[in-house]
Amino acid sequence: MKRTIKTSAVIALACAAAGIGLAGCKADATAAGSPLAAHRTDDPFTGTKKIQVNGKAVNVSCSGTLSRHKPVIVLLPGLGDGLDKMAALQKTLSKDDRVCSYDRLGEGASDKPDGPQSFASTGKILTGVLDHVAGHHPVVLAGHSLGGMIVGRYAPDHRDKVKGVVLMDATTPNSVADITRDIPANATGQAAQLREQTLQVDQGNNPENLVITDTKVRSAGNIPVQVIKHGKPYLAAFPQYGPRMEQDWTAGQHKWLALSHRSKFSIAAKSEHYIYLDQPEVAVQAIERVAAQAAR
């Protein structure tokens, strides 16, 4: 889906900002032996249904066959996107794998959050979803934009469950600092609007009420990780400040490589921010490759 430069930049930077702090889930609430972990179930349903997680209705979609020898692939869309955005990707992947996606609180058909969310609270919802759709099976998490940030912050605290990660133009780990540095406070016009909108999103003024904070990338163990960056430098087209934003976005993608010694970086040459829509074959190949490595 094509968007104006201004809208694309807001989505990429703001969603990325929203995704940056999501990985800070606390292990004490979601680790093995916790109340959530104690109720893990394998529910090999096909289609879309709502499940209860922490007293909230969460809209979940699953397809494909559950296998003892393969991980369950779970897709996380970006900020402002529901699971329907990834329906085509899920359909393709589910020909050979078990694949699920879900609407985070505030998105799609899921309940709205009661108030501001943190990466810890968002992570607890993700844990509840994984417990329901994967049970004791390992998972591969594939996230786009903010969804990628959530994955990148969640995986290090859940090494027993997460056995592979794919980040598709994930929000950068230092997105808040990036926007404040790249566009100065005295900027005017569209640049000033972009700065203000992005910082408002960071403060929780977004559909998920997620407060976004910067974080240092931590190790998720020696798992396969694929980081994919957009190849069309659309951020650079933004007047005056675009080239610096593009540069910092690229640097942020490389920071995600610290998730694992088995991390690999690639560029989707023909894609803007929505890699899985612009070049779905790139997303499919990366996810299938990581899932295959995680199954060994």
Rank of each mutant, 00 (worst) to 15 (best):
K2S: 14
R3E: 08
T7F: 00
S8D: 12
A9V: 14
V10D: 04
I11H: 01
L13G: 05
A16D: 09
A16K: 01
I20W: 06
L22H: 07
L22C: 14
G24K: 14
G24Q: 13
K26C: 11
A29L: 12
A31F: 01
G33I: 12
P35V: 11
A38Q: 15
T41E: 14
D42G: 12
D43E: 11
D43K: 07
P44E: 03
P44H: 05
F45Y: 06
F45H: 06
F45Q: 09
T48Q: 11
K50R: 13
I51L: 10
I51V: 15
I51M: 08
V53M: 07
N54Q: 13
N54V: 06
K56V: 05
N59H: 12
V60W: 08
S61E: 05
G64Y: 07
L66D: 02
S67T: 15
K70F: 00
K70A: 13
K70Q: 13
I73A: 01
G78V: 03
L79A: 11
L79W: 07
G80D: 06
G80K: 05
G82D: 13
K85D: 13
K85E: 07
M86E: 09
Q90K: 14
L93C: 07
L93T: 04
S94I: 06
V99E: 00
C100E: 02
Y102C: 10
D103G: 11
P113H: 06
P113W: 00
G115F: 00
F119G: 15
S121D: 12
G123L: 00
K124G: 01
I125Y: 05
G128E: 08
D131Y: 04
D131M: 06
V133P: 01
V139L: 04
V140D: 05
A142R: 02
H144L: 09
H144E: 13
M149D: 05
M149T: 08
D157Q: 15
K161N: 01
G164A: 08
M168G: 00
M168H: 05
P173E: 03
P173W: 06
V176C: 04
V176A: 04
D178C: 02
I179E: 02
I179K: 01
T180G: 08
D182W: 02
I183T: 06
Q190D: 15
Q190P: 09
A191W: 02
A192F: 02
A192S: 15
Q193R: 11
R195S: 10
E196R: 14
V201L: 08
D202Y: 09
D202I: 08
T213R: 12
D214I: 10
T215K: 03
R218V: 13
S219H: 10
S219M: 07
A220C: 11
P224I: 00
Q226E: 13
K229Y: 03
K232Y: 06
K232W: 00
Y234D: 07
L235E: 02
Q240M: 05
G242A: 12
P243A: 02
E246C: 05
Q247F: 02
W249I: 04
W249E: 03
T250D: 08
T250N: 07
A251K: 13
Q253T: 01
Q253A: 10
H254G: 06
A258G: 08
A258K: 13
A258I: 07
L259I: 10
K264I: 09
K264A: 15
F265K: 04
S266M: 12
K270D: 13
S271A: 15
Y276N: 09
D278H: 12
V284H: 03
E288P: 05
E288I: 09
V290R: 04
V290G: 03
Q293M: 10
A295C: 07
R296D: 09
